[in-house]
Design a protein around this nucleic acid. Structure first.
Lengths: 196, 196, 196, 196
DNA sequence: GATGAATGAGCGTTCATTCAT
DNA sequence: TATGAATGAACGCTCATTCAT
């Protein structure tokens, strides 16, 4: 008759995930500016007041979305095998594929990046994730330099930064603000890195 | 005793400029999300109702800010003399200087880029400016390729896009989301382009 | 301990009715021109924001008032027994009584009539109600003509219109714009119709 | 070089008249609710601030419109020759013609009637005019009764009131709130008065 | 007399949050 | 846990009016 605790918790976790996803899509479509708790609750079929049982404040929900997005992105960068050059190529291809399949991810990422400048809590989350990403890229590049894949004088850290920066601004390209396709610029990056 | 017409107009234009600047700084500090007409008016020492004497709606004011920012950026890219390689180097240096002296410009530029995805009026302004910038860069690169400054197989358009994309995401770097300085990534770009 | 559903709904409906009544009195006193949501809410002891919990917009509330007024008036015209002449006499007496007891009803009715000319939604409501009233009167008059209560050449439709028009302008009389009492003009109408 | 005083005054009076007319048309179209001084000024090609040189306040302008409308209507009722029955018939025909040619006049008249209930200054103007009209009608009717045109027991004052009341509500008919034409009801009034 | 500039008071509406049930 | 009801603070915008020029 009565659901046991784990079931309740499970249901609660599902609800939380559904709310995060709904908020994520809201932000992708209308930006942080257009994020409304009532909308999010309605998308999940919840009363707007009930939402506060899962997220005490709007800020808490936003932080959950930030965590969700950064973790989604981190999944793109987990691999262990192959040469440094193969790893980097795989990573860039994974990113490119993600851009095509789910451009929303990069839109929200940009929104988060902007908000991180004003919100220390968000900044902390983003910073941690970005540093991890940067370290990963730097590691690959340094390994490649040691193996002779890239010239000795390539600045690994700077190159890693350039890659991240380029990635994060691709939503601007996808938004058709630039008269080219994202692939082109990405290909140029690969050429610079002599990835083919 | 009586002010001449140009003086009156001049005063009005000054007010308009002051309001645009105040809005610009508000956006830089708090984003579009935090842009409040009452704040902007107060910064200029005006009643919030008077603001509507200069801008009929909030949207009109925002568009004025967008125009201001894109034109400010366009000024960085106006030069006529020197070889293609010198021109590109000068341009990148001017951008770098701008990033250091007034990082707010790039914060607002990112805000605008995000908003352009949802607002056709803003998109039109940004698109026009970005296309102009892209054409300028492509022209320089193509000229350089013809002169042998860069290899024959350099994709001028893609490279131009990469430069723009990199530039537009530098605010994320300046926001200390990356453990490096903007200069480093910019230097890497210059190295790729064999600018020194 | 726990209120049942009908009670909850009942309370909500009571609030809605109270708000409609408050708006009705506001319009009677200050016209549509002077109708303020904050006033209405305060009359019911509610925060003005809460009013939007019951009526999404001011227009929705106004329409509710229009429906309320037209239905109130329709109640004056519901009867089934008696000869046509008796029915008409009863109807006119009911209207007269209403004018004396609640002149506000006719003030608001005039406000509505004026607004109906510019507002299609209100016009639809008023039109429907007025047409019903006109049909009722025409029916009574035609029945009376068949029974010989009134002369064969009496134009039933035109007479019905004249009665309605006269009724709707009585608020002007009650407002003491005419140096006579409403009863007098109403009596004259009855004499014309040989109602006594 | 410089216009003499009478010319200036003349020009000023023309301006005042133009403003009154513009306001009149605004009220006819959008009601008192939609009357905006800026609109009125613009219609006459005047700066909104300049309008205040001719009418110190909005209320003053409204009163001028009220006077204009009541005087326009009074012109319909000025005649000296003919038998009482001929005079009344002529008057009703003149009114009917006015309704057809310029229904706006009756719309504004209704607006004024409603506003008169709340505004003593307007009430005073309307009352004076209405009383005059009522007296005129009563005079004609009494003269007709003495001459045997109408039955001895006709209540002259009540009949006059009924005529005025009917007239003032014709805009509701013209607004197509009633499924008949104004002429029909007016004809019925004439039949009651045995005008043909 | 004419006008651009400025203002105060106020409006309808929004929304995250709280709370009793 | 769930929800209808309620609220305060704020927002963009309007408009009659005032005033210096």
């Amino acid at each position: 008759m009565m659901a046991d605790k784990s079931e309740i918790t499970h249901k609660g976790e599902e609800r939380v995930q559904a709310l995060i996803l709904a908020a994520y899509h809201s932000i992708a479509e209308k930006g942080f500016e257009g994020l409304r708790l009532r909308d999010v609750a309605q998308q999940v079929g919840l009363n707007h007041a009930t939402l506060h049982h899962y997220f005490p404040t709007k800020e808490a929900m936003v932080q959950a979305v930030v965590l969700y997005v950064t973790q989604r992105l981190a999944q793109t960068a987990t691999f262990t095998e192959g040469t440094p050059m193969e790893q980097l190529r795989a990573h860039l291809h994974a990113l490119q594929q993600c851009m095509q399949e789910e451009p929303a991810l990069f839109v929200v990422l940009s929104e988060i990046g902007l908000r991180a400048q004003r919100d220390p809590a968000i900044r902390a989350i983003v910073q941690q994730q970005t540093e991890g990403w940067h370290a990963l890229l730097t590691g690959i590049l340094e390994a490649g330099i040691r193996q002779g894949d890239w010239p000795r004088d390539l600045d690994a850290e700077a190159t890693a930064s350039a890659i991240i920066a380029l990635t994060q601004s691709f939503n601007l390209i996808n938004a058709k603000l630039l008269p080219i396709r994202a692939e082109q610029a990405m290909k140029q990056l690969e050429r610079w890195l002599e990835l083919k």
